[in-house]
């Protein structure tokens, strides 16, 4: 790496001379560089998106068509494999289970994290600093390795194959990230707000509910949207905690479906597309929240 730091003489020349020559040269170089860099950007965009487009396109073709012609356009589009995946392969059940689990657990973790984050931002005692540190450690620890005790605990409570068991687990798993983002937002709100509310006779909960909550709405949106993605995609927990096929969420449903429909390519592609559509829609509608969730650690 260090070997390449030789002074770029051409740049030195152009700054020394002045006049029209350097600017022309700079302009030309920028164009060559510009073409190269936009080629790179477009090329990688194609590499990034082509497999997903292929998934969509193949879901609209028949298996026979794919066997004859591995690459081809879905003309005319054929939607029968969606019907097959949705009804025959029980994707309707998986899909609604996934929606239910995702929505309920994201709401649960956001609600409890809002309360906790508010306390972390508005207390000074060492106890709360420690607790916040413990919650945050959940971001770095491989907590999924605790699956065996979790399995026994839910089994003892009769909650294996119960979607509520999964919701509680995901609700807990969302706490580290949600409190982290929300607490940093609450901390930015001036303490004068609390003083004013207190003078008007509001208690801690009223202050939280009527004054702070409306002000942290953007952070709530980030937390909700951003937690949606890992919960919707998670495969590990339902693989172990859900044994009953009627309670499968989409990712576990897909593994079963891949075993059963091995040769029915069109239906396989349709199933994968169905599991992906909600995320793509969410991303296009809430790009801002997703991006701010991904970069949450950078804003300090």
């Amino acid at each position: 790496m260090t070997a390449t730091i030789t002074p770029d003489t051409s740049t030195d020349d152009s700054t020394d001379r002045g006049g029209t020559a350097p600017s022309r040269r700079a302009g030309r170089r920028a164009t060559v560089g510009g073409v190269a860099s936009s080629t790179f950007l477009w090329l990688y965009a194609a590499i990034s998106i082509a497999p997903l487009l292929l998934m969509l396109s193949n879901s609209l073709r028949t298996t026979q068509d794919m066997a004859k012609q591995p690459l081809g356009l879905p003309l005319p589009p054929n939607f029968t494999s969606y019907g097959k995946a949705w009804i025959t392969a029980s994707f309707d059940t998986y899909f609604f289970n996934s929606i239910f689990v995702t929505v309920a657990s994201v709401l649960l973790s956001t609600a409890v994290s809002l309360l906790a984050a508010y306390a972390f931002a508005r207390t000074r005692s060492k106890l709360f600093t420690t607790l916040e540190g413990v919650f945050l450690s959940g971001l770095m620890l491989p907590v999924y390795l605790a699956i065996l005790p979790l399995f026994f605990m839910l089994d003892a409570a009769g909650m294996i194959s119960n979607l509520w068991g999964l919701i509680l687990v995901y609700g807990a798993l969302g706490i580290p990230f949600s409190t982290f983002v929300l607490a940093s937002f609450f901390r930015q709100l001036p303490i004068e707000l609390d003083e004013a509310a207190r003078l008007d006779g509001a208690g801690p909960f009223t202050t939280f509910w009527r004054v702070h909550l409306p002000l942290v709405r953007p952070a709530i949106a980030t937390v909700i949207v951003f937690r949606f993605v890992p919960v919707w995609n998670d495969f590990f927990y339902p693989l172990i905690l859900i044994r009953d096929q009627s309670s499968y969420t989409l990712p576990v449903g897909i593994t079963r479906f891949f075993g059963e429909y091995q040769t029915d390519w069109a239906t396989l592609f349709a199933g994968l597309t169905l599991a992906t559509i909600p995320l793509v829609v969410l991303f296009l509608l809430a790009t801002k929240q997703i991006v701010s969730g991904l970069t949450a650690g950078m804003s300090k």
Binding site: A119, S125, F135, M153, A172
Partner: peptide
């Protein structure tokens, strides 16, 4: 600032969920 007691009330739901489904299984594992 919030009193210690009020703070605890706010933290309690998250703490319960975290302890039961993350901390306890992790230590047991």
């Amino acid at each position: 600032t919030l009193s210690r007691r009020a703070g605890m009330v706010f933290v309690l739901p998250a703490l319960a969920l975290f302890s039961i489904f993350i901390a306890y299984p992790l230590l047991t594992a």
